[in-house]
């Protein structure tokens, strides 16, 4: 269970980074801005998905 969660979290990190690279590369043309945008967007997406996951888990525990 815990190793599955860790694996899924690592996969989420990979996907967040890839998504952020593509979006930042589309928005900007300057390498420094692309790298800064990648870090910011990557953390935003990762945080949003983790937050939704935590809320979902809390609701499922509450209802069960």
């Amino acid at each position: 269970m815990s190793s599955d969660l860790l694996g899924l979290f690592l996969l989420l990190v990979v996907f967040s980074a890839a998504l952020a690279v593509i979006v930042s590369g589309y928005r900007d043309d300057d390498p420094a801005r692309i790298l800064r945008g990648t870090v910011r967007r990557s953390l935003s997406f990762l945080g949003a998905v983790v937050a939704i996951g935590v809320v979902s888990l809390g609701v499922s525990w509450f209802l069960s």
Binding site: V14, F15, A18, V21, I22, G25, D29, P31, I34
Partner: peptide, 13 residues
């Protein structure tokens, strides 16, 4: 830079 970053990301993923 963008070629390597974007191309590498797409192929790597």
């Amino acid at each position: 830079f963008k070629a390597l970053l974007l191309g590498g990301t797409v192929l790597g993923l």
